[in-house]
């Protein structure tokens, strides 16, 4: 079953700046898809269009077979949660508890239900001991975990991570990637927007955007093996991948070394 279907989607911020051109994409239920691209490639614009924060110039977006329009946008937002890049700019509540509750309050959850869910999801993201803390007492990684808890509490089936790890230190980044893996295993559809290839290696499929157009789309293994596409994407390649390509260029055919480098590329 398709969760999200995008047909001929185009969007421009102004006449001179075209952000996305004729995007066609299908995201299946329970899939983890990474949208890779350099700065200005249109990744975040695509995320904002999917959740209805921007209105497309052309094309359609279907979420669970419901066409995204002004009338259906609120219904669709109940199905999609989004974790933004800057942890400080999405923390609405005065405390961790308030922030996790914010989405549920908007969706008119019962108070008892809210209390139970706050406890459950604060524990899930290891933030229970910080429940009454204010945002300025938390690190960037902790704030992102609170944002994840807030979205989990809203019980959305699809979660978009819009460069959610780009402002975090390596430890915070690892912990968020760990939660993404866990959520995907639990059946959530994950759309991960990033310019870091090492984050994308964990996903089922990769889409590479370049200057607002789809440069490549395919299984993660296929994309990572496509040297030509990766080189033209202007993305920073993973070191093991770079080494693999160099070995190829030098015509060194040591399969064992290549296999080790491939496994390293996949974070295994």
């Amino acid at each position: 079953m398709n969760t999200i279907e995008i047909k001929d989607l185009s969007f421009s911020y102004s006449e001179d700046i075209t952000a996305l051109k004729n995007i066609n994409l299908v995201i299946k239920k329970g899939e983890w898809i990474s949208i890779l691209g350099h700065n200005g490639s249109g990744k975040s614009t695509l995320a904002k269009l999917i959740i209805g924060l921007l209105k497309a110039d052309k094309g359609d977006i279907y979420v669970d077979e419901v066409l995204l329009t002004e009338d259906t946008v609120h219904e669709i937002r109940r199905k999609i949660g989004i974790v933004f890049q800057n942890p400080d700019n999405q923390f609405v509540g005065v405390t961790v508890e308030d922030d996790i509750a914010f989405g549920m309050e908007n969706l008119n959850f019962e108070r008892e239900d809210m209390i139970n869910k706050i406890v459950e999801y604060a524990k899930k993201v290891d933030m229970f001991e910080y429940i009454s803390k204010e945002p300025h007492a938390l690190s960037g990684g902790q704030k992102q975990r609170v944002a994840i808890a807030g979205i989990l509490a809203m019980n959305t089936d699809i979660i978009i991570f819009d460069e959610a790890t780009s402002m975090l230190d390596p430890k915070g980044r690892e912990s968020i990637i760990g939660y993404i893996k866990e959520l995907n295993k639990e059946g959530k559809t994950i759309i991960s927007i990033t310019h870091e290839m090492k984050e994308a290696v964990n996903s089922d499929r990769i889409i590479i955007l370049k200057d607002g157009e789809v440069l490549a789309i395919g299984e993660t293994n296929t994309i990572l093996n496509d040297k030509e596409v990766l080189n033209s994407s202007n993305l920073e390649l993973l070191l093991p991948l770079k080494l693999m390509y160099k070995l190829d260029e030098a015509n060194i055919k040591n399969e064992k070394v290549k296999d080790i480098l491939w496994q390293l590329s996949l974070n295994k």
């Binding site: 609120h74 800057n86 700019n89 914010f102 008119n108 108070r111 706050i118």
Partner: peptide, 21 residues
């Protein structure tokens, strides 16, 4: 950014909301 985050979490100005406190 905050307005986007609030909208994405189903905040609709003027709509009734339940409260945790």
């Amino acid at each position: 950014d905050l307005a986007n985050a609030m909208e994405a979490r189903s905040f609709i100005p003027g709509n009734p909301r339940t409260r945790i406190h």
